[in-house]
């Protein structure tokens, strides 16, 4: 399998109040075509900075990329012209955000918000689609994320939808432009367990149906095991361990991973 996304020895630092702090140290990871990969770590591990650097939404300055490459389909995102990068962002690779309430604009309907995204994605890709065509695509995507009544949802404002529905709208947004890579940042963590389970199942089904690659950024090891076959563990700006998810969870090699896994409460209880 060829790598769709490949991060090579990425180093990033931040300079605040004249002090430079290196937050990523030689981070390397691979997302093969159609694979589900997890990047797991606690707060401050650097997983979000890694994700933001990949998406190109890292504020520079204060951040500075000290070295490394991010190859998407063989092209380095860090050196390509901004125009080309803009074309990729939100089209070939898109993002599912964590907090549905702050990622949706409360004063526009779902249809308006999805329509705007689609319009810009189309423009970047040089596609020609009229209003009718866009509406049809919006209903199609809302159906894909299992909305029972896409037309009603399209007319709704975010506040009229439940938390799980809003999270599904965010997934729909990411799917609009038919990306090949989906980057999901803690999807469903703000939701109830039963809703979260539905969202994870939906994500899993969608990536297989559409042959997408998934890079899941999370701190929840259970979520990792439910969705991703391969896992990178991050701590203090470094990848400390990577491998098949189940083998990492069953027999972690590194001390940090071991303590992280030991801290997870088990459904079977302590003694098991």
């Amino acid at each position: 399998m060829s790598a769709l996304l490949s991060v090579e020895r990425l180093s990033v630092s931040f300079t605040t109040y004249g002090r430079r702090t290196q937050v990523l140290h030689d981070v390397s990871l691979n997302v093969p075509e159609g694979a589900q990969i997890a990047l797991v770590g606690e707060s401050g591990s650097g997983k979000s900075v890694t994700m933001k650097t990949i998406m190109g939404i890292l504020p520079i300055p204060p951040a500075k990329i000290e070295g490394g490459r991010i190859l998407f389909e063989g092209r380095d995102l860090l050196t390509m012209p901004e125009r080309d990068r803009l074309r990729l962002r939100g089209t070939a690779m898109s993002m599912v955000f964590q907090d549905p309430m702050s990622s949706l604009n409360p004063v526009f309907t779902i249809q308006d918000q999805l329509g705007t995204i689609l319009k810009y994605a189309d423009r970047r890709l040089g596609r020609d689609r009229d209003r009718r065509g866009r509406y049809a695509r919006i209903l199609e995507v809302l159906g894909q994320v299992r909305m029972r009544d896409p037309e009603r949802v399209a007319r709704s404002f975010p506040i009229m939808l439940s938390g799980g529905m809003r999270q599904r709208i965010l997934i729909a947004m990411a799917l609009l432009s038919e990306p090949r890579l989906l980057i999901a940042d803690e999807p469903g963590t703000a939701l109830d367990v039963t809703t979260q389970a539905q969202i994870l199942k939906l994500l899993k089904d969608l990536v297989t149906e559409n042959r997408l690659a998934l890079l899941m950024i999370t701190h929840n090891l259970g979520v990792v095991r439910e969705t991703c076959g391969y896992t990178y563990v991050m701590n203090k700006g470094r990848i400390v361990e990577h491998g098949q998810t189940q083998s990492i969870f069953d027999a972690p090699r590194e001390e940090y991973t071991r303590s992280l896994i030991a801290a997870v409460p088990r459904l079977t209880g302590r003694d098991a």
Binding site: V193, T194, Q196, N220, V224, Q246, R266, L267
Partner: peptide, 19 residues
């Protein structure tokens, strides 16, 4: 619905189709 990290825990979970 509980996301778990081991096969033993998974064996404890009732299998029901999620809505």
């Amino acid at each position: 619905s509980v996301p778990v990290i081991s096969a033993e825990e998974e064996a404890m979970r009732p299998v029901i189709p999620l809505i």
